[in-house]
């Protein structure tokens, strides 16, 4: 039984008058390790020695799923036909996710590669599922440098298990760098009656 946490359009309310604190995970290696292929291993070993090359340090968007563990806060807003996630960090960016049914899952045939990809979401029970493709290859999966390319396919699952906790998993599938899909698991903590601040990363780099 889930505790009552409010509903929007008959779905669990992932928002409300508050914000979600996101964790900071510099290295998302899961307990079982990362199923690198040889190219993936090579790229990661090199990047680990070059933390200053992290694109996020140039105030570029962290990408998906990294934006969910980039340490800044997030607010979720639900409309009947979309879920909007707005972020304090990652250069004050947003994700606007159209919501349909799983059967209706569709992406553009040849999407323009972007940092945040092309997202499509649906509800599965009390969980919000989001399928994301169409990435560029310019973000790292974490600050340790786990790589991805344009073939990256991410499936996210958001579950509000109680009023203060949002569980999150992201399955990462990118045959260019990994031998099989692997999963990142984390969670966010609710801060009621708080609001997001304005953090403009490029203000510092513009000096």
């Amino acid at each position: 039984m889930l505790p009552v946490i409010g509903q929007v359009n008959n779905k669990p309310d992932l928002g409300g008058p508050g914000v979600w604190s996101l964790p900071n995970i510099p290295d998302v290696t899961p307990a079982g390790g990362v199923p690198f292929n040889s190219k993936g291993k090579q790229v990661w070993e090199k990047r680990r020695t070059q933390p200053a090359s992290d694109p996020a340090r140039a105030c570029l968007p962290p990408g998906v799923p990294r934006i969910m563990y980039s340490s800044y806060s997030m607010e979720i807003l639900q409309l009947p036909n979309r879920v909007v996630m707005v972020f304090e960090g990652g250069t004050h960016v947003f994700r606007s996710i159209p919501i349909g049914t799983k059967a209706g899952l569709k992406h553009p045939a040849d999407p323009n590669p972007t940092y945040l990809g092309d997202s499509y979401g649906w509800w599965e029970g009390n969980s919000l599922m989001v399928d994301v493709v169409g990435f560029n290859d310019r973000s790292w999966l974490d600050s340790s440098g786990h790589p991805h390319g344009e073939k990256l396919h991410v499936v996210e699952k958001f579950t509000r298990v109680d009023s203060s906790k949002l569980e999150y998993t992201a399955t990462i599938d990118d045959p260019e760098y990994y031998t099989r899909p692997w999963t990142v698991t984390t969670s966010a903590t609710y801060r009621p009656n708080d609001r997001l601040n304005e953090y403009i990363c490029q203000e510092e780099t513009a000096k």
Binding site: P61, E75, L77, L79, R82, V84, V86, T91, H92, V93, F94, S96, R195, L196, I200, Q202
Partner: peptide, 23 residues
């Protein structure tokens, strides 16, 4: 830009201006 109207607030999301939002 797009404008999202919610029961107690409005969110503007922008393509430019560094892909920002305004609540």
């Amino acid at each position: 830009l797009q404008v999202y109207q919610m029961p107690d607030r409005i969110l503007f999301v922008y393509e430019g201006g560094a892909h920002v939002w305004r609540l």
